[in-house]
Amino acid sequence: MKRLAAGLLSAISSAALIAADGQAVAEELLPFEIHGDAVPKALGGLSGDAQRGKQIILDRRKGNCLICHTFPIEDEPFQGAIGPPMSGVARRLSEGQIRLRMIDQSRINPKTAMPPYYRTKGLADVAPEYEGRPALSAQEIEDVVAYLATLNG
C-alpha cells in the first residue's frame, strides 16, 4: 500500500517536472461554461490581445484560418472559401458566441468542417507531435477572439 502510494507520487512529480521543463505533455484544458450558444467568460479569466490574435490566425502552424476563411487582410492573395467570410463577424456574433465557435464548433453543428481549436478528447489518430494538446492554447484562443471582435466593418 505504502509502495503503491510512493509510486503514484513519483509518477505525478515526474509529470510535473516535465511540464516545468516546458516539454509537450498532455495539457489540462481550463474549464468553461456554455450558456446558450456562447461561452461568455474568457478562458481562465485571461485577456486577449488582438494584434497577437491576428498573427495566430495567419500562422500556418497555429490557426491557419485563411486556409478556409477569407479575412479583410490585404497582401494575402490565396484565401480559402470553405467557411463564411470573417469580415463583419463581430456584427453577427458576440464575443461569447465567437469563443464557443473557436473552442468547438461541433457543439453547434455536429457535422461542421471547422476544427475544434480547444479540445483534446474524442479525436482519432492525432499526430504524435499534437497528441494531448489543443490546437490553440487558452491564451491563443483569447487572442483570436479579441482579434475577431475587431472585425465589425
Partner: peptide
C-alpha cells in the same frame, strides 16, 4: 472517419467540399 487534431475526415474534404 474524422481524424487528426483538426478532426476532419477524407470525405468531408473530398465529397462535401
Amino acid at each position: 472517419r474524422r481524424q487528426g487534431q483538426l478532426n476532419l475526415s477524407c470525405a468531408q474534404c473530398h465529397e462535401a467540399l
